[in-house]
């Protein structure tokens, strides 16, 4: 009798668990709760952040109109529901910081947010103003990461950023470049300055950073953000007519964005990648790269060879 009751209870528990699992797998929030996203540590602190973040160049530079704003709120909602953390922006990106700030307020400022922005000006005083504006636009008393955009006037701006970090307005500081430009200067700064982050262009076709900058980042204990993971969307457009290799299933890649992103963030020296999108469904695809097995060194070589043959 007792055994029968026990087995009925076990069956009910199992059924309830299955139903809950099925329900969780349907909802984006449930997905994030069910599977742990890949995270990597920021070397200077040990804090671990999700390896897929989000860029805002072009995609969040939209007017304050109901249609575009609703889409951006949905994109950000999907980003956080699927385990995202870092959002990267800049005063150079037009209204992007303001739009991100509005969306974050609408989403009650998710705890997972890792706010990253930049100072983009040659003027030291304007740089200070931009930092103050960013605090205001993001609606935060503190930014997680403030960077010097494209190394402009980096000596003076790094001084400003260190001051602001001392004042508790910034947690981490860094420098950025893109399109493979000014790598020599970036290398000199990485060797001479105390940085938490560098941001540079790294993707399956633009791998120059592998030679010096990525190993140097690890050597110096600097986190690396990879920008232009899809060369804007050129890589997706270039590969989308080709099927993924069968072996992509081994690393749970269902589409090209996941394939390209997993290649980037599986590099041992890369901390996270920041794809941008203005399409809600694409955000879902991108965030898929945050889960499942990552390619090892041998598979990374196969990935490079595969796209090289396309």
């Amino acid at each position: 009798m007792i055994d029968r009751r026990r087995s009925r209870r076990s069956f009910l528990k199992l059924a309830a668990a299955s139903a809950a699992g099925w329900w969780a797998s349907l909802s984006p929030a449930g997905f994030a709760a069910e599977r742990e996203p890949h995270r990597k540590p920021i070397p200077s602190s040990g804090e671990r952040i999700p390896v897929i973040g989000m860029g805002t160049w072009i995609t969040f530079n939209v007017p304050d109109a109901p249609g575009p704003m609703a889409v951006r709120r949905e994109i950000l909602g999907r980003f956080f529901a699927r385990g995202g953390g870092m959002i990267d922006s800049s005063p150079m990106y037009g209204r992007a910081e303001a739009v991100v700030g509005d969306c974050l307020r609408a989403l009650d400022r998710p705890e997972a947010l890792f706010s990253a922005t930049k100072i983009w000006t040659r003027s030291t005083s304007t740089g200070r103003e931009q930092h103050a504006d960013s605090l205001d636009l993001w609606g935060a008393g503190r930014l997680d990461l403030q960077q010097v955009h494209n190394l402009q006037n980096w000596q003076a701006h790094l001084e400003t950023l260190r001051e602001r970090r001392e004042a508790g307005e910034v947690r981490y500081i860094g420098i950025t470049t893109s399109h493979g430009r000014r790598h020599d200067e970036m290398e000199r700064i990485m060797r001479s300055e105390d940085l938490d982050f560098v941001q540079l262009t790294y993707n399956i076709l633009d791998r120059e950073a592998e030679q010096r900058l990525l190993p140097l980042a690890t050597e110096r204990g600097i986190a690396v953000i990879a920008n232009r993971p899809f060369r804007q969307k050129a890589l997706i457009e270039r590969f989308e007519d080709h099927p993924l290799p069968d072996w992509a299933a081994e690393i749970e890649c269902e589409n090209w964005p996941q394939f390209l992103l997993k290649f980037i963030v599986s590099h041992p020296d890369v901390t996270c990648a920041i794809p941008a999108t203005s399409v809600v469904a694409h955000m879902g695809e991108n965030m898929g790269a945050l889960y499942g097995p990552m390619p090892d060194a041998a598979m990374r070589e196969r990935m490079v060879a595969w796209v090289g043959d396309l």
């Binding site: 072009i58 995609t59 530079n61 939209v62």
Partner: peptide, 16 residues
Amino acid sequence: MLPFDGPTWLAILEQY
């Protein structure tokens, strides 16, 4: 270097 896409350009024209 264009910091916005086609729909945003059209939205700017519309607001203007």
